[in-house]
């Protein structure tokens, strides 16, 4: 039995990591100059397709969704299928909505506290501070990949590594791969990415902006 302890926060962290990895934008040859190249990015929006690969699945499980980011600290990460789920972050407040039989319902904030711990670091990543987290070793590869590897063995039991594949367009990421083990990994491919297209602040504060005042 591979029992993992002390990793509730890591689980939440990885969730947020999935959501925020796309913000590793504005490409350069090394991590030092990467930060300087991304300063022009004020907002990003993109659609994504997520493939979950498991040993017991012949075909990956496909999810689809969209993300919105506004510098410095606003985020919306939303799944539309197979199950709707919405994560909002704005002004240091985190909210998550899940589908219930009576419509979308906000999770209790207590269950999101673990995420909050890591959001500060995520924001640093959005600003190009990829090596700010002492628990992760960040390396820029020559083939336009950034590889993040947990230093903490407890965290490494949850995730082996994260690979971010960058396009040659500054501000646009092609895909993120999160490897939990050799047989369990998640690929997220981004498409229709728009940079600095302008996003209403309600997108980060409301479940259904313009339609819903929950």
């Amino acid at each position: 039995m591979k029992k993992i302890s002390k990793n509730t926060e890591y689980a939440a962290f990885l969730t947020v990591l999935l959501a925020c990895a796309v913000f590793l934008t504005g490409w350069a040859d090394d991590l030092e100059t990467l930060k300087e190249k991304v300063t022009f990015v004020e907002s990003i929006q993109a659609d994504f397709t997520q493939e979950k690969h498991l040993e017991m699945l012949d075909q990956p499980l496909i999810s689809k969704g969209a993300l919105y980011f506004q510098a410095p600290r606003s985020l919306r990460w939303e799944y539309s299928r197979p199950v709707r789920s919405v994560l909002l972050m704005h002004n240091n407040e985190i909210r998550r909505y899940v589908r219930t039989d009576s419509g979308m319902k906000a999770q209790k904030s207590r269950s999101l506290e673990a995420m909050r711990v890591f959001l500060g670091e995520i924001c640093m990543w959005m600003q190009g501070e990829f090596d700010a987290n002492p628990d992760l070793e960040a390396r820029m590869k020559s083939d336009r990949r950034v590889v993040l590897t947990p230093k903490d063995p407890a965290m490494a039991e949850v995730i082996e590594r994260i690979e971010l594949r960058l396009t040659d367009t500054p501000g646009v990421i092609d895909a993120v791969a999160i490897h939990e083990s050799s047989t369990s990994y998640t690929n997220i491919r981004f498409h229709d990415t728009k940079i600095n297209a302008g996003i209403e602040s309600a997108v980060f504060q409301e479940l259904d902006p313009g339609r819903d005042k929950q």
Binding site: A11, L14, T15, L18, A19, Q50, K52, L54, M56, L61, S63, Y79, V83, S85, V158, I178, E180, S184, T186
Partner: peptide, 15 residues
């Protein structure tokens, strides 16, 4: 029975 439970984001919570 074999069961894998994962978060919506794909993180395996239980196997």
């Amino acid at each position: 029975i074999k069961c894998v439970i994962m978060s919506v984001e794909g993180l395996v919570l239980f196997d």
